[in-house]
């Protein structure tokens, strides 16, 4: 085979491998969504979203899972706000106040990487231990705190990556006008807004789909919590508990819960992209 032919064949081979890989990814997304939608739609009804479960629900009777939807939204909403409140100052301190060669910055990033890799069940076990220490029962507050701990490293590392590429010239331009570092943060926020949106989306995705950490901390209940001290149901646990049932109607209901979970994640992803694009309007 001459060199020209060899080059053509290798180019074709590499392209084929790439196409196969891409097809696997698309197939994966399509098959997951198809399975969830086809199975979930069968059991989906208005009462699934509105009617609280009763004792008979788990034997195939009437009732849905609004308790899990509301519980998940409570936990995710509160932990996202708390996570942002903790993470944003850390990211700004790392990137605007600390020097690049700072030892503290190095150790902080390493600590976040370690926390990033900790499995969620370990966070659950840790939260559970803390709750026992303080004599607390499974509660909405417990779930919120553990999920916050789970997503803080995701927030920090994702926003940190976005901020590290921040053009130094913009900081200098702001300082040169007499701005303090605190005043300059306003400019930084505008520039890294897409990064914050991405970090929030990733964190919410992780938070809303995690079952292991909330199992021991938020618990599970058939009612909607009215205070932070009450246990709260979550969608992943609604899927988990119902999917293991021997009754087909209950299993179908698990798929309906999975469908709601998927739709929430899809809405967040699409709206997140929309928001990111709007924020990117002024980005350099």
């Amino acid at each position: 085979m001459d060199i020209k032919r060899k080059k053509q064949v290798s180019e074709w081979a590499v392209k084929t491998v790439m196409w196969i890989s891409m097809s696997i990814v698309f197939l994966l997304v399509f098959s997951v969504i198809w399975t969830i939608f086809s199975k979930g739609c069968k059991a989906m009804s208005w009462s699934m979203l509105t009617k609280l479960p009763t004792a008979g629900t788990y034997l195939g009777g009437e009732g849905g899972f609004p308790n899990a939807i509301v519980g998940s939204l409570y936990i995710v909403g509160a932990s996202t706000v708390l996570g942002l409140l903790v993470s944003i100052p850390v990211v700004f301190y790392l990137n605007v106040y600390l020097k690049t060669s700072s030892k503290l910055a190095y150790w902080l990033r390493l600590a976040c990487d370690v926390l990033f890799g900790v499995p969620s069940i370990v966070y659950g076990a840790f939260g559970f231990t803390i709750m026992i220490f303080f004599g607390l029962r499974t509660s909405l507050l417990g779930g919120i705190i553990v999920i916050t701990m789970l997503i803080i490293p995701i927030f920090i590392r994702t926003m940190d990556e976005a901020t590290r590429n921040f053009p130094r010239e913009i900081l200098d331009a702001s300082y040169a006008l007499g701005a303090t570092r605190w005043e300059t943060l306003k400019v930084v926020v505008r520039q890294i807004a897409p990064g914050i949106a991405t970090a929030t989306l990733l964190s919410i995705g992780r938070a809303i789909g995690d079952a292991a950490s909330v199992m021991f901390t938020a618990g599970y209940t058939d009612s909607i919590p009215t205070s932070l001290s009450q246990p709260a149901a979550t969608l992943p646990l609604a899927v988990f508990f119902q999917l293991t049932s021997p009754i087909p109607e209950v299993v179908d209901r698990a798929y309906a819960a999975a469908l709601v979970l998927t739709i929430i994640v899809l809405i967040l992803s699409i709206s997140g992209r929309f928001i990111t694009n709007r924020f990117s309007k002024n980005k350099l």
């Binding site: 053009p167 010239e169 331009a173 303090t180 520039q191 980005k283």
Partner: peptide
């Protein structure tokens, strides 16, 4: 900060802030 306000800077590469 007051010193920098008093001494304007135009840098090599134009660097508009990410705003209007």
């Amino acid at each position: 900060t007051e010193l920098r306000r008093k001494i304007g800077l135009v840098s090599q590469r134009p660097c508009p802030l990410p705003m209007s």
